[in-house]
């Protein structure tokens, strides 16, 4: 039995120690925003925050993250839309949408460490998040808009 706090809510889960966080979130807790894309940290669709840092949840084992605070996209805005989510809507970024929760979680992490990223900064940080629909131009534009929104607050 492991303790885990997801989006501010404490849970106890009875799973094997090696179970990836992605499975715990989706199958044990019913939180399906982190997506299974590749299972080997090559696509970024499963990105969540662990103690404030973006992590590929397909790689994080339950035994290693027990007791840590997990945030998924459901809680990034504290009851309203996060500026990154607002920018995503303004730019109509998603096409199929499958990768977009991972993209947004990674973008939030980027803006925490680098509030005014250049295009190059964005390319460096977001290159591990793949989008088969090719929405990269809109992702980059939305991140710049979100940076302005956060900087203006």
């Amino acid at each position: 039995m492991f303790d885990i706090t997801v989006n501010g809510v404490k849970h106890q889960v009875d799973v094997v120690p090696e179970m990836p966080l992605l499975w715990v979130l989706r199958d044990e807790l019913g939180i399906t925003s982190p997506k299974y894309g590749c299972g080997i940290a090559q696509c970024g669709a499963c990105t969540v925050q662990v103690d404030g840092a973006a992590v590929r949840s397909c790689q994080a084992r339950m035994a290693d993250i027990a007791g840590k605070a997990i945030i998924t996209i459901e809680a990034v805005g504290n009851g309203k839309l996060h500026p990154v989510q607002e920018a995503w809507i303004e730019h109509q970024v998603p096409q199929c949408g499958y990768c977009q929760t991972g993209q947004i979680m990674q973008a939030i992490s980027l803006l925490k460490s680098n509030p005014k990223p250049t295009d190059e900064d964005i390319n460096e940080v977001m290159s591990g998040n793949l989008c088969r629909c090719g929405t990269y131009e809109r992702i980059r534009a939305a991140i710049h808009t979100a940076a302005e929104k956060i900087g203006g607050n």
């Binding site: 080997i40 940290a41 090559q42 992590v55 790689q59 035994a63 900064d121």
Partner: peptide, 24 residues
């Protein structure tokens, strides 16, 4: 990778055995 994307985003810190390639 602190300046951009930390290595630990994908290469998580764990003492469990490594998974088969190509998992990180």
């Amino acid at each position: 990778g602190a300046e951009t994307i930390p290595c630990s985003t994908c290469h998580v810190t764990s003492t469990t055995p490594n998974d088969p390639a190509p998992a990180p």
